[in-house]
């Protein structure tokens, strides 16, 4: 045996820290610097810049108007999502498990899913008035279909072996729906919630823009129109944070409650 040593080729950028978070932070700093420099160089002073936004954070987050706006929007989104999850799960299970329901309503559910909910906003205000109820309806409408469609997909793709075992042990329809189909469709439900949360957030903001009720959307609109761009951006940041939070919660929930899911997908 000759003493050959195999030398790994030098990794490019080996001097960079390997931690994911450090790299993410550096990426963010690069973008923020670009933004700060370009906007500072070419645009009027009132246009939002990273340093201005950071400076605005303490005053905005202690502003009771902002806080109640944030509460109004985010609590509406959470409540609307909760309603959409419950309704969407039931409808999704029915679509996935009952052929007749699928044949009668599947077409319309897909159609309504594809339709932008902004289009029905004027109608919603006719039904509910310029109120929080109109926002709630918009949120539910926006979130419901992505959950129903995902759960229906999940319910349809339950492995027949699981259903066979359940039937062999004399499972009734309740057990088939909630004991077998729902857990098997859980990964689909979580994916649906992910989608729905984004759509619900959009729905809430657009509804607030349109019907001018208290909330982050209206806060952003008002501050932008009064040239408080940095303040408006703090609200945008909060919305982004909420989105990231939902994403993280779903990832956590998948790991915590569906430990079997990823492993199984891997071996298939």
């Amino acid at each position: 045996m000759s003493a050959t040593t195999i030398v790994a080729p030098a990794r490019p950028f080996a001097w960079l820290p390997t931690s994911n978070w450090t790299i993410k932070l550096i990426g963010g700093l690069v973008l923020a610097t670009l933004w700060q420099v370009l906007v500072g160089a070419f645009l009027p002073a009132y246009v939002a810049k990273p340093l201005g936004i950071i400076a605005a954070i303490p005053t905005v987050v202690t502003n009771p108007l902002f806080l109640s706006a944030a509460w109004a929007t985010l609590s509406a989104v959470v409540r609307g999502l909760a309603v959409a999850i419950v309704l969407g799960t039931f409808v999704g299970l029915a679509l996935g498990r009952v052929k007749l329901v699928e044949r009668a309503f599947g077409f319309y559910v897909s159609g309504l899913y594809a339709m932008p909910m902004v289009a029905v906003l004027p109608l919603v205000t006719l039904w509910f008035g310029y109120t929080g109820a109109a926002r709630m309806a918009t949120i539910i409408f926006a979130a419901f279909f992505s959950i129903a469609i995902n759960v229906a997909d999940g319910a349809k793709s339950v492995p027949p072996e699981h259903l066979e075992v359940a039937r062999s042990y004399r499972a009734g329809w309740r057990e088939i729906w909630f004991g077998v189909t729902l857990p098997a469709a859980m990964p689909y439900l979580l994916a649906g919630i992910r989608l729905a949360a984004g759509r619900a957030l959009i729905a809430a903001i657009v509804a607030e823009f349109f019907i001018s009720i208290e909330g982050l959307g209206f806060f952003i609109l008002f501050n932008s129109r009064t040239f408080h761009h940095n303040e408006a951006f703090v609200a945008v940041l909060l919305l982004a944070l909420f989105g990231v939070g939902v994403e993280a919660a779903m990832t956590w929930a998948t790991r915590r409650f569906l430990p079997w899911y990823r492993r199984e997908a891997k071996t298939d």
Partner: peptide, 13 residues
């Protein structure tokens, strides 16, 4: 009556 399946039929969750 109980059946043992070739595909095991365990619920992964």
């Amino acid at each position: 009556v109980a059946m043992v399946f070739q595909h095991f039929g365990l619920f992964p969750w």
